[in-house]
């Protein structure tokens, strides 16, 4: 069933070496580094899925922070025991459905994904039927609405206080493993008739429908898939952070993902991975910008927020001068192909 060729053996080797690296990291690196690696892994999950609707299908969307929030809350609520919920919910008593929600890790993550997908399909239908243009604005607004809902339904979410003491049930193997799985799934979709259809919609939507593609269905499929994995990523994030609240999932999260996939190359999964490493690593490294600065002996004082300014300038510069990003639309395997695909 699984074609045993040189390519597939190489891929298998790659996955094994990644797990090898994770093993070494989990047992030898310090907590800080492990935390960053976990972060990078989760961002790979998010960036790879965000890339599917934005980069591969070419529909500009700003959805991640909303679906990540949904996923985070679903997983957190599913993992917290009934007793914990009674203890944590301070504004109002937890709703019976919330109390009844008790799942293990994998079902919790799956439910996170499914919840996000259901919402996504509802959102996407009015937008894709009419004007794809509006997807960005609708998803941007959606991110805010989720926060509004989270704050105003304390019997479900504990309102602005949020949830904490989420059990820490994952480690690098989980985040790394799910990251690998997500990338594999995304690549499988891209190298199939569905991926071809998505790229066709991106390249020339009118020609795509002139060739028999149901563009509405394809866009919804891509959007729903992105939502699913963003929900799962949100669940992972909730566990990693162990504390979540409505104002945690701000537009900045979406903005980071946008920079990641633009830097890596819109439409390239390899690019999403590279971008995640660079941006998350870079965010840490650039922390010094938010602290008191002194350059060449001059004291510039402390300007928190300078890091964000640098990132926004970075995005603008990439769009103006290096729109294709690092990988363009290509994957690592395309570079090794013999014939000249550009």
């Amino acid at each position: 069933m699984f074609p045993l060729s040189r390519i597939n053996l190489l891929k298998l080797l790659l996955i094994l070496s990644i797990f090898g690296f994770l093993f070494i990291a989990q047992n030898n690196f310090n907590d800080y580094t492990i935390r960053i690696l976990n972060n990078i892994a989760i961002f790979i999950v998010l960036a790879a899925s965000y890339n599917l609707i934005n980069g591969v299908t070419g529909q500009f969307s700003l959805e991640p922070n909303g679906f990540v929030a949904i996923g985070a809350y679903v997983t957190a609520l599913a993992l917290l025991s009934e007793d914990m919920k009674w203890e944590l919910f301070q504004l109002e008593d937890p709703h019976p459905y919330i109390l009844a929600l008790n799942l293990d890790l994998i079902p919790a993550l799956l439910l996170s994904g499914i919840a996000a997908t259901v919402v996504a399909v509802f959102l996407a239908t009015p937008v894709f039927r009419v004007r794809g243009d509006y997807l960005a604005i609708v998803t941007l607004g959606f991110g805010f609405i989720i926060k509004v809902i989270a704050i105003n339904t304390p019997e479900f979410t504990n309102g602005s206080i949020g949830l904490n003491e989420i059990p820490s049930v994952i480690n690098l193997y989980w985040t790394g493993g799910i990251a690998i799985l997500t990338v594999i799934f995304m690549l499988n979709i891209i190298y199939s008739k569905y991926g071809r259809a998505m790229k066709a919609v991106r390249d020339d939507e009118d020609a795509a429908s002139a060739i028999g593609i149901n563009t509405f269905k394809i866009k919804t499929l891509a959007f729903g898939t992105s939502a699913f994995f963003e929900g799962v990523g949100g669940g992972l994030l909730a566990i990693l952070l162990s504390t979540i609240s409505p104002d945690l999932f701000t537009f900045f999260l979406t903005f980071q993902l946008l920079i990641i996939i633009v830097l890596g190359g819109l439409g390239s999964m390899t690019g999403a991975i590279i971008g995640s490493v660079i941006v998350i690593g870079g965010m840490e490294w650039l922390r010094f910008l938010d602290a008191p600065l002194s350059l060449f002996g001059f004291d510039f004082g402390s300007h928190p927020g300078l890091r964000m300014v640098v990132f926004s300038v970075l995005l603008i510069i990439i769009m103006l001068f290096a729109r294709e990003g690092i990988m363009g639309k290509k994957e690592l395997s395309d570079i090794f192909k013999k014939k000249g695909s550009k």
Partner: peptide
């Protein structure tokens, strides 16, 4: 109006995609 990011083969495969039943 060919699909600018894809190869000749991929462009033609898209035409066949309705017959691919998976």
């Amino acid at each position: 109006r060919l699909f600018s990011s894809m190869s000749v083969e991929e462009n033609i495969l898209i035409g066949f995609d309705n017959t691919a039943k998976y």
